[in-house]
Design a protein around this nucleic acid. Structure first.
Length: 896
RNA sequence: GGACGUUUAGCUCAGUUGGUUAGAGCGUUCGAUUCACAUUCGAAAGGUCGCAGGUUCGAAUCCUGCAACGUCCACCA
């Protein structure tokens, strides 16, 4: 290709599809084919990331795009570093979310009750269709983002292999007594008619009528509630043990008639009751409040269910109320209490309403027979676990989850999320895993009367399968090992150690789990639970949590606000590389990020800059020289090579520490600020740098590849490099090229001098193109430096000549550059007042600095305690400042 | 109520073991433009690092308190 004819602006959409296809076809995404592409992948150390499987509920949003950008960055970085990189793709069936979506769609299309009208199989057919379409969209989106996952090994949380893992886990946990069927209070969504886990329920701020009353005329204690309709189910009134108002009643069981329904209420004492709140007496409703259910457990209270699964009052509420909705019942009760004279007062208070996270429907708490994972139950470990427990020893699931993080076998980044994780574990209740929806893994349990059998196959005649399905997080929580061939790839050896084979052995524990902090509990914690339980090891070494992507005003992106940025609309407009950069740069781990189109535009500009840098190098430097070792001939050569070494090292360190933004900024400064703005300009003056130019361009492409895979691979291909960039090695150490150590510093002196002369010109209105004469007062070392690089200084500062003098002539504008005084020979002369003002200002800034620095250096505490380097640096800074001050004062004198 | 964050230039944000006179991008102002790139180049202005104390030779950085904003958890029944 003739680069002179290449387009001035990088056209991402013209090249991206083709580049992606070549990567995919080459086998670079497939860890087992890497060795065919490059020798160094033979026996390479594996590096594995599982993709947090996106829900098959539609399309990916910009949050997913951020996740893909970060994970692809890591995978590409480690692949180039010679690791056998495996990124496992897959999607999540997202049981409830997907079913809700399809059900809603069918309702919108006019079906009154889709589940009833279609029946289980036909309904599921509709859901599967939708899920399949979502999957196709998601895969295309992932590819558009440049994700280098091994697409030949795509997984699905609801496919046969995952089902096998789910059933195996269920069976093991059932056998260990960790999964149990129980009649307990659960969160019930009356709209979608299913249970929900505690994490799927949210508290929404609202207002409620708070009524204070007695159950009947004779009842001696007043209680308060916002939900009088539940009071048919009260079996106790709890008071604080030290509350003198109620002491005398404690222990009694009082029979009362509440709105026509006889109830038996025991007066109990419990520390948890707040004496200051309401009347200080709490009506306990074990069947309809998780908190009350705990109290009931503690005090041995019976449970009376008065609200049914349809959200309506049951027969237990008495004939007058049975069949009413809770709201109807509430109104009727309030009226009845008032009529009976039992009502003490009615207030409006701020109260949080329980609502479903998905859908936002009010959630009822009801006692139901459901399946639970018991997190506080001691069980016998199946294998040696986390290096702490031996096979056969006892522990609880909570203990495993806690120890995995406490012992740093899984690192949580940023580490403040550790505290949040521990807090969640401490407050964790048993996990209700059965759902009354159809889309998901059916619970592998069979019933015959009261008999129960666990397994996938029917135990025989007369056995019926549980119609319920498992919480979607049950299958997601196995994701790190269900995708690697578990349970087939694991046995426990004679010593109690887990013996892994195949992919499980190679890749588990995975390297890092990268995801948004919003699913720390839902998913990350549950993966730790399952992996430590089933394998006795952590699921991943690092947990890296990224922040949420918000709009430019910091609001959550949502369809209703209309502030959603769709990655698939942005990619054709700005290019994938720009979109990726905008999601990785200017952010810190765990911090939310504001994203605007302007920001993406800025990074589009940068991809174009890199394109033009490449174009220039490729038109100027003889390509054949790219195989030669760069030869250092000038100061600038030594400087840029030293900078490259420094940057290469630092970037790798930063990426290893998940500091992508900082690494990227460093790279950008080097690419744009050092290489393009300085070195390339110098290369126009000092010719014959073909090998260095090619070397640095190649290095830049490699260093940028994890961030900007497309433009870098494209240019790499144009250079005629045989091997694809994606599998080429991270830049080699270049320090074999001899160079004096001082070159970096000396170059900085020159760079500062040139900038200072440019400023002087600008301040004095010298035309940009005009050549001027300067006089320099300088020490010998600097003088030598300038003389050796005369052409560069003259060209970059636009100078006609440089003269070294003892003193700058009166009447010339001057500036200080380090210890060097620069005088500009202007025909127009100098504006004396302006020059004086400038000098005075500089002096005014310098004097307090010198005073403060001198004081510091005279302080024995400082010189004694501070490291020598700090003291020496300060000394030389002081000397420089003093010389500058002296020159400025002299200057002021000559100005009169 | 509990916990965890955030507060640094007009805006968006870096600043990892405390160490030069605190940085970047965008925006603004001034100037340039046949020569890789106007998706560009040169230059400038702009900050008492939320407030108040403390530790230290030295604090944006560590400690204490306060304020504002945000998030999560709990739910007072």
């Amino acid at each position: 290709m003739d680069f002179k004819d290449s387009p001035k602006a990088y056209d991402a959409s013209a090249v991206e599809t083709d580049i992606f296809r070549k990567w995919e076809e080459s086998g670079a995404f497939n860890p087992d084919k890497l060795a065919d592409l490059d020798e160094r992948y033979k026996n390479a150390e594996p590096y594995c990331i599982v993709l947090p499987p996106p829900n098959r509920t539609g399309t990916l949003h910009v949050g997913h795009a951020k996740m893909l950008a970060i994970e692809d960055l890591l995978i590409r970085f480690y692949r180039m570093r010679g690791r056998k990189a495996y990124w496992i793709p897959g999607t999540d069936h997202a049981a409830l979310a997907t079913q809700v979506k399809v059900e809603q769609k069918l309702k919108d299309e006019g079906m009154a009750d889709p589940r009833k009208e279609l029946g289980r199989e036909q309904f599921l057919e509709k859901v599967r269709d939708f899920a399949q379409k979502s999957r196709d969209t998601i895969v295309n989106q992932c590819k558009a983002m440049g994700s280098s996952m091994d697409w030949t090994r795509e997984k699905y949380t609801l496919d046969a292999e995952r089902n096998k893992a789910v059933n195996a886990t269920f069976k093991m946990m059932y056998g260990d007594g960790l999964i149990e069927r129980g009649f307990r209070v659960v969160n019930w969504d009356p709209v979608f008619k299913t249970t929900l886990s505690d994490d799927e329920v949210e508290h929404k701020e609202g207002q409620a009528e708070f009524v204070t009353f007695t159950y009947d005329k004779n009842f001696p204690i007043q209680i308060s509630t916002t939900r009088p309709e539940t009071k048919f189910g009260d079996t106790a009134v709890a008071v604080h043990p030290e509350d003198e108002r109620y002491n005398k009643y404690v222990g009694q069981t009082i029979e009362a008639v509440f709105c026509g329904k006889p109830i038996k209420v025991k007066i109990i004492a419990d520390e948890s009751v707040d004496r200051e709140f309401g009347t200080g007496a709490l009506g306990v409703t074990p069947a309809h409040s998780l908190v009350d259910a705990d109290l009931a457990d503690k005090h041995g209270l019976p449970m009376v269910q008065v609200i049914g699964e349809d959200g309506k009052m049951t027969a237990e509420a008495g004939a007058d109320f049975a069949g009413l909705t809770t709201v109807e019942a509430r109104k009727k009760i309030v009226a009845m209490l008032e009529a009976q004279g039992c009502m003490v007062k009615k207030e409006t208070i701020a109260q949080n309403l329980l609502v479903a996270q998905r859908g936002g429907n009010p959630v009822e708490q009801l006692p139901m027979r459901q399946w639970f994972v018991r997190v506080n139950k001691k069980f016998k470990l199946r294998q040696n676990t986390l290096g702490k427990w031996k096979r056969g020893e006892e522990a609880t699931l909570k203990e495993l989850m806690r120890y995995a993080v406490e012992s740093k076998q899984t690192r949580v980044l940023p580490d403040n999320f550790e505290k949040i994780y521990f807090h969640w574990i401490d407050n964790l209740r048993d996990w209700c895993i059965s759902r009354q929806i159809w889309f998901g893994h059916q619970i592998p349990v069979w019933y015959k009367g009261e008999e129960i059998q666990v397994g996938n196959e029917s135990p025989g005649e007369g056995w019926e399968r549980d119609p319920d399905t498992l919480d979607t997080w049950f299958s997601s929580s196995l994701w790190t090992f269900s995708t690697l061939g578990w349970p087939d790839n694991a046995t426990v050896d004679a010593d109690g150690n887990l013996a892994k084979t195949g992919e499980l052995k190679e890749y588990h524990p995975t390297a890092v789990l990268e995801t948004g902090y919003d699913i720390l509990f839902f998913w990350v914690a549950r993966m730790v639970l399952m992996s430590t339980y089933a394998l006795g090891e952590v699921p991943f070494r690092d947990t890296y949590l990224h922040g949420l992507v918000r709009d430019d005003q910091g609001r959550k992106m949502s369809k209703s606000l209309g502030n959603v940025l769709d990655p698939l609309e942005l990619i054709p407009k700005y290019g994938t590389d720009a979109v990726r950069l905008s999601l990785v740069m200017g952010t810190a781990p765990g911090m939310d990020q504001k994203l605007s189109e302007d920001k993406i535009k800025d990074f589009r500009n940068f991809t174009n800059k890199l394109w033009n840098i490449s174009r220039y190098v490729l038109t100027q430097a003889n390509l054949e020289s790219r195989i030669l070792n760069p030869e250092i001939r000038t100061l600038a050569d030594g400087w840029i090579m030293a900078r490259l070494d420094e940057v290469r090292e630092k970037v790798a360190q930063l990426i290893e520490n998940y500091q992508f933004s900082q690494a990227g900024e460093l790279l950008r400064d080097f690419t744009w600020g050092d290489f393009a703005d300085w070195y390339l300009e110098i290369a126009k003056i000092e010719k014959g740098k073909d090998a260095i130019l090619n070397h640095i361009l190649s290095s830049l492409l490699k260093l940028w590849h994890p961030y900007m895979p497309f433009v870098t691979e494209y240019v790499w291909g144009l250079m005629g490099n045989g091997k694809q960039l994606i599998v080429s090695a991270w830049p080699d150490v270049t320090s074999h090229v001899a160079r004096p150590a001082s070159q970096g510093e000396e170059f900085e002196t020159l760079r500062t001098l040139i900038t200072d002369i440019r400023r002087l010109r600008s301040e004095n209105g010298v035309e940009a193109a005009a050549l001027v004469k300067v006089a320099l007062v300088s020490n010998e070392a600097t003088k030598k430096l300038i003389q050796e690089n005369l052409a560069v200084v003259k060209q970059l500062a636009r100078l006609e000549s440089i003269e070294f003098v003892a003193a700058v002539e009166q009447g010339w504008p001057t500036a200080m550059s380090g210890a060097t005084t620069v005088g500009l020979n202007l025909a127009s002369g100098v504006d004396v007042a302006k020059e004086k003002d400038k000098a005075e200002k500089e002096i005014a800034a310098l004097k307090p600095y010198i005073a403060a620095t001198e004081a510091k250096l005279q302080n024995a505490d400082f010189t004694g305690k501070a490291p020598e380097k700090v003291v020496n640096d300060m000394k030389s800074k002081l000397d420089e400042a003093k010389a500058k001050l002296q020159a400025l004062e002299k200057r002021l004198e000559t100005l009169g």
